[in-house]
């Protein structure tokens, strides 16, 4: 049985990846999961310098999911290279580094520094985090801005570039097309849906940031729909994510047109989720006598 998939020339042993920001750099979850079993570890967003993130409370539970407003706290790219990337060298899995910034120059600085790192297989550009005031989502909600940042990153990037798209737009296919036209090698979607929770006893917002990004099983149908829409709009490969909790959920995304999938908030619920989904996917293929996972990618038109 073949479970490997290829995106922009990078071969992944299976299509199961981690959702950026839900898995650190793999260190914490390596106690639960054999990272060698994963198609790729997608790291928490990293900026040119350390970011402190937002005030607390940063997380809240909602029906069938959660809100987060971490605000991309990260130690900066230099510490990331020295520590996190070094840690990942011992594993036989692909490494996708999520890159964030406040200005285009911030992104370019990180992309340039990561260019020398052979352990980095791909870059995922976060232009869709709803929880920071500057940068991030500002680049992901206007097609022209997305085109501009994508083409500038593509000019200097040494690794293939994935643009991570926001669902908080009128038409996500417009963003997918802009990324493709600017030379992106792939797109990943969806980032979180902007949400809000109010504490009705205290009459105030639950999150210090007022709004947060919603993730978890409750958002899956929205994500499947958007993956399917983008698969019909662009030729570049798609990494699908949003509420994946089981292998069956992963199959749904693959059938909608994703070449790979990422498991996000479910890591917090079940720390074994990624590995169980990778195992479950193999089981699904065997039970359905599918010899190659690529046969089901985009099979639902």
């Amino acid at each position: 049985m073949n479970t490997s998939v290829t995106i922009a020339g990078v071969e992944f042993k299976n299509p199961v990846m981690t959702g950026s920001g839900t898995f650190g750099s793999g260190m914490e979850y390596s106690e639960f999961v054999d990272l060698n079993r994963l198609g790729a570890v997608v790291t928490k967003g990293v900026a040119n310098v350390a970011w402190p993130g937002n005030p607390t409370p940063r997380v809240a539970e909602v029906y069938g999911g959660m809100l987060n407003a971490i605000g991309l706290q990260n130690p900066g790219v230099d510490v990331f290279i020295e520590r996190d990337l070094e840690f990942l060298k011992q594993f036989d899995t692909k490494v996708i580094v999520n890159v964030c910034g406040k200005t285009v120059e911030d992104y370019l600085e990180v992309v340039e520094k990561l260019g020398d790192q052979a352990r980095v297989d791909m870059l995922e550009i976060n232009v869709s985090c709803p929880n920071v005031k500057e940068g991030a989502i500002a680049f992901g909600q206007k097609a022209e801005a997305l085109f501009d940042i994508t083409s500038r990153i593509k000019k200097i990037a040494k690794q293939p570039v994935i643009m991570k798209l926001s669902p908080n737009v009128t038409d996500i296919t417009e963003m997918a097309r802009a990324a493709e036209a600017a030379g992106a090698d792939a797109i990943s979607l969806i980032n979180t849906l902007t949400g809000m929770k109010i504490d009705i006893e205290r009459r105030r917002f639950v999150l210090a940031n007022k709004t947060g990004g919603m993730s978890g099983p409750a958002i899956k149908p929205v994500a499947v729909r958007m993956v399917w829409q983008c698969a019909n709009a662009v030729q570049i490969p798609i990494i699908g994510m949003g509420g994946i909790a089981t292998a069956e959920d992963a199959v749904e995304f693959l059938m909608a047109g994703a070449t790979a999938v990422a498991v996000g908030a479910m890591n917090f619920v079940n720390p074994y989720a990624t590995q169980e989904i990778a195992d479950g996917l193999e089981r699904f293929l065997a039970e359905h006598r599918i010899g190659d996972v690529n046969e089901i990618i985009g099979c639902v038109k």
């Binding site: 920001g21 839900t22 898995f23 650190g24 914490e28 979850y29 106690e31 639960f32 928490k44 350390a50 970011w51 402190p52 993130g53 607390t56 409370p57 940063r58 997380v59 959660m66 987060n68 971490i70 706290q73 130690p75 900066g76 510490v79 908030a265 890591n267 917090f268 720390p271």
Partner: peptide, 24 residues
């Protein structure tokens, strides 16, 4: 808290010095 294992960075508190892990 969300993950409980140090990955999600949801449950942070302010530290007097720069923290060894977060570098903030």
């Amino acid at each position: 808290m969300a993950c409980g294992v140090g990955a999600c960075l949801g449950c942070v508190c302010k530290t007097t010095a720069v923290d060894h892990h977060s570098h903030v």
